[in-house]
Structure formats: structure tokens, C-alpha cells
């Protein structure tokens, strides 16, 4: 990862110095292990703060929405797919962006790792395929593949789909993975079990809206939950209101979600929130052969009409 960091800094400084971009958006080291912070570098000094490791799971496309400057942006596979989606949806122009592509080998799941230990983790060090977790009185070596975020473990688009420059050679894409395993499992339940499954899933929700706000797709000037004239959904902790929020949030991502996992990563309550969007992604793939953000030239399925669109649901 050290090579990635050095290369990112080198590219960022070059772009800032020669005026190609006004800023470079990337990550800088956080104050806690497994917590890096999105960072905006506007000069060579702040470009030296840029870094890369397996804790850069937030989606940086979230930070370019409606910006007017020329922006250099560090993008792994999923970020690049969301940048493509942003371009398609007119949230940014392609020629405003200089995409610094990151061939990605997956991000590690901080929720999972934190839950593995009873005490504080003081440092997380990576070396190749292993991760060493240490605390005040312990040190444990883990295999990175075992502690990947679930979406990364089943990711089939690790390489950026759109980029101006790469920081390293492309990585091999995974082929033998099933991103929809849990969806298939839920599909086999009856209505009652499904209802209860999701009831239990979202029961810890505190409606902080971190899932919505970390998502590059959620850029509405006023979200439906914040709308007051008319008010679409109640604001209390009433379970039906909480569920309405989750259903509608997910549905607004239909055909657009790249399964970057930012929503799940940021949830302070550790809710596996991708269970909602994954179903929509699976449907889009099965009904329209569509995965979001793979091409600048194709319109999304919910944005177009084709005579052979599936219509069995209309009676």
C-alpha cells in the first residue's frame, strides 16, 4: 500500500502544480485505527497528507456532487462507477474530473474486526495479504481476505471502470463469487419471516441518516424525510416510519447502486443495510442485465423504455 500512497502523492502534486486540477480529493490518515478521513488537497503540502490503505472504504464520489472546480479524485472500482453515475445524472462533467484510478484489493470491515476483540485496538498494520491487529496487551495476525467488507469480498469490479491514470497495474477481477447469496436466502422465506427479518435488521436504527448521507446517490436538495410541505413520513422512532425511510431510501437507489458499501460502513449501529439495496441490484441484473456505473454511454434501465422490458407484473 506504500507504493499506492507514494504514487497518489506524486500524481496529486503534479496535477496541482501544472494546474490540471484545482484540488485533489483523496484520503488522509485518521486519528483511530481503521478510520481514514476524506481529504481535500489544494496545495503540495496538503497533498503530502494523502494516503492509501485498506481503510478507504468511504465513497469519494459523494464529495464531488455539483462542484464546479476541476477536481482530481482518487477512485477505486466502486467510486469510479459512482463517478460514471454522477456524469450520467449530470451531477458533474466528465471533463471536470481527473480520475486517479486505484486497482483495489478490497477494504477491511472495521465493524467485524472491532467486534472480534474485547479491548481497544491501537494499531492495524497491513503487509501484503496479512493484517496485524494489536492492542495494549495483544497482537493478532489475520488474513485480509477473511476480514474484508462483505461487498468487497464479493466484488466483481475491483478495477476502476473509468480513469485518467492508474496508480498501479490492474488487479485480477474475482469471478467465483456470489454477491447475492443473502438475497437468495431471504427470497426463500415466507412473507412473515421476511417481514420479521427486516424488522429485526433495522430495530437498532436511530435515524441519524448516515447511510443516506454517505451515499453518493443521495444528493436530492431536500430528502423526502426532510420535506415538510407535505410531510411524507413521520419523524419519530415509530417502526413504520423508520421502515418507510429505509424502503424509500433503498428504492431511490434502484438501478444506481454500485454496492460500494459506504452505507453499511458508516452505520453507527452496525446495521447490515445493504440487504435492502442488494435485492434491487439483483433484480436489475436479472431483469435488465444491468449493473450501475459501468459505461458512460448507456442510459440506466429506469431511465429508458424498451419494448422488451419485462412487464409480467402488469395484469
Amino acid at each position: 500500500m506504500k507504493e499506492y500512497t507514494e504514487k497518489i502523492r506524486e500524481i496529486a502534486k503534479r496535477l496541482l502544480n501544472d494546474g490540471t486540477v484545482d484540488m485533489v480529493i483523496g484520503f488522509r490518515k485518521g486519528t483511530l485505527p481503521m478510520m481514514n478521513q476524506p481529504h481535500i488537497a489544494t496545495c503540495t503540502d496538503s497533498a503530502d497528507e494523502l494516503m492509501w490503505d485498506s481503510n478507504c472504504g468511504l465513497n469519494l464520489a459523494n464529495y464531488v456532487t455539483d462542484r464546479k472546480e476541476k477536481i482530481g479524485i482518487v477512485a477505486k472500482g466502486c467510486d469510479s462507477r459512482n463517478l460514471v453515475t454522477h456524469v450520467i445524472e449530470n451531477k458533474i462533467k466528465r471533463d471536470q474530473l481527473y480520475i486517479i484510478g486505484i486497482p483495489c484489493s478490497g477494504m477491511i470491515d472495521h465493524h467485524k474486526i472491532t467486534a472480534m476483540f474485547d479491548t481497544d485496538i491501537t494499531s492495524v498494520k497491513e503487509s501484503g495479504e496479512s493484517i496485524t491487529i494489536s492492542g495494549n496487551d495483544f497482537s493478532k495476525k489475520l488474513i485480509k481476505q477473511d476480514v474484508l467488507c462483505e461487498n468487497c469480498a464479493a466484488c466483481t469490479h475491483r478495477n476502476p471502470v473509468e480513469y485518467d491514470e492508474l496508480v498501479a497495474d490492474l488487479v485480477e477481477e474475482q469471478t467465483d463469487v456470489d454477491p447475492y447469496e443473502s438475497v437468495t436466502e431471504i427470497e426463500s422465506m415466507d412473507a412473515e419471516e421476511k417481514w420479521n427479518y427486516f424488522e429485526d435488521l433495522i430495530s437498532p436504527c436511530i435515524r441519524c441518516y448516515a447511510c443516506r448521507n454517505a451515499c453518493p446517490l443521495c444528493y436530492c436538495p431536500t430528502c423526502f424525510v426532510d420535506e415538510s410541505t407535505p410531510q411524507w413520513v413521520g419523524k419519530s422512532q415509530d417502526p413504520i416510519d423508520v421502515r418507510t425511510f429505509h424502503l424509500l431510501r433503498a428504492f431511490h437507489c434502484a438501478g444506481r447502486c454500485t454496492d460500494c458499501g459506504a452505507c453499511e460502513r458508516v452505520c453507527p449501529m452496525g446495521i447490515k443495510i445493504r440487504e435492502f439495496t442488494k435485492k434491487l441490484n439483483k433484480d436489475c441484473l436479472e431483469l435488465y442485465g444491468w449493473e450501475a456505473g459501468l459505461s458512460l454511454d448507456e442510459r440506466p434501465p429506469l431511465d429508458t423504455f424498451k419494448t422488451d422490458d419485462p412487464d409480467e407484473f402488469i395484469k
Binding site: 436511530i206 435515524r207 441519524c208 441518516y209 448516515a210 448521507n213 454517505a214 458508516v266 453507527p268
Partner: peptide, 8 residues
Amino acid sequence: FACINCGT
């Protein structure tokens, strides 16, 4: 800059 304005 990094803040996503959630209520956490």
C-alpha cells in the same frame, strides 16, 4: 470537508 452531516 469530510463531514457528511449525519446525526451520529
